[in-house]
Simulated assay, not measured.
Amino acid sequence: MMNTERCVGVLNVECELPPGTDHLAGSMINSETFGLPVLMETVRGASLDLVMRGDTTLEASYEAAAQRLVERGAVLITSYCGGAIQYQAAIAAAVNVPVVTSSLMLLPVLLRQIPPSAKIGVMTFDARAFRDDWLGITDPASRHRVVIGGVEGGALFHNESSCPPQSTSVADIEEDVLTSVARLRASNPEIAALLFSCTLFPPAAAAVRRSTGLPVHDIVTLCQATLRSVS
């Protein structure tokens, strides 16, 4: 039976979440963030390693998980792992609600919002593991305007890499992201806007905006804009 209560549907890989993650202010899996219930659906067989590699055998599992979320009342499908952008087309074709798997979908729009000489700073969990093809940019000049920074070595990185994962406070997330942003801006003073590709970063967005004075975009801002477009 289809659930008639509107909600945000979040696809997740097969992994354990740190305790209290859904209560962090600003987290995409905190229902207060969107003013709607947030329902999560694990994608069967979707280990983090396979998703990061873009294993095509997971397409059917992503499609089925998204369909289950729609049946449960989801008016928007998103993902708690940005690597799911590799399955964006398959998921969007499988459901009749908007699908936004990653904040990286905003990149072409953001590049047009800033001067041609300016850059976008993409903040990710681990810059060493970031795949260039996720950007969806083929023009070399546009690619030159995108720089990548990660939070390797910080408290968030350490806690999320632990087994099982450990909780990280909002204060620690803010410190890690601000440190990474400062490092990236020092080597790229042309940065005019920031895009958080990591779904763990939205709780730090407000602090980063205050500290840097820069526009900060993430999966939460993308989902909020999309939700405003649906009845």
Score class of each variant (00 low, 15 high):
Met1Leu: 15
Asn3Pro: 07
Asn3Asp: 14
Val13His: 08
Cys15Ala: 15
Glu16Tyr: 13
Pro18Asn: 09
Pro19Arg: 14
Gly20Val: 15
Asp22Gln: 09
Ile29Tyr: 09
Ser31Arg: 15
Leu39Ala: 13
Met40Asn: 13
Glu41Thr: 12
Arg44Glu: 12
Asp49Ile: 12
Leu50Ser: 12
Val51Cys: 07
Arg53Tyr: 06
Arg53Ile: 09
Tyr62Arg: 07
Glu63Asn: 05
Glu63Lys: 08
Glu71Gln: 11
Arg72Ala: 10
Val75Ile: 15
Ser79Ile: 05
Ser79Arg: 01
Cys81Ser: 07
Gly83Glu: 01
Ile91Ala: 01
Ile91Gln: 04
Asn96Glu: 09
Val97Tyr: 00
Pro98Asn: 06
Leu106Ile: 04
Leu106Met: 01
Val109Met: 09
Ser117Thr: 14
Lys119Pro: 04
Ile120Asp: 00
Ala129His: 10
Asp132Gln: 11
Gly136Gln: 06
Asp139Trp: 01
Val146Glu: 01
Ile148Asp: 05
Gly149Ile: 06
Gly149Met: 05
Val151Pro: 00
Gly154Gln: 02
Leu156Gly: 00
Glu160Thr: 13
Ser162Phe: 11
Ser162Pro: 00
Cys163Arg: 14
Cys163Pro: 04
Pro164Thr: 06
Gln166Ser: 14
Ser167Cys: 08
Ser169Gln: 02
Asp176Gln: 15
Val177Gln: 03
Leu178Val: 11
Leu178Ile: 13
Leu178Glu: 12
Leu184Phe: 05
Ala186Val: 08
Ser187Thr: 10
Ala193Tyr: 06
Leu194Val: 14
Pro203Val: 11
Ala207Met: 08
Arg209Pro: 06
Arg210Pro: 02
Ser211Leu: 12
His217Phe: 06
Asp218Ala: 03
Asp218Arg: 01
Ile219Trp: 03
Cys223Met: 07
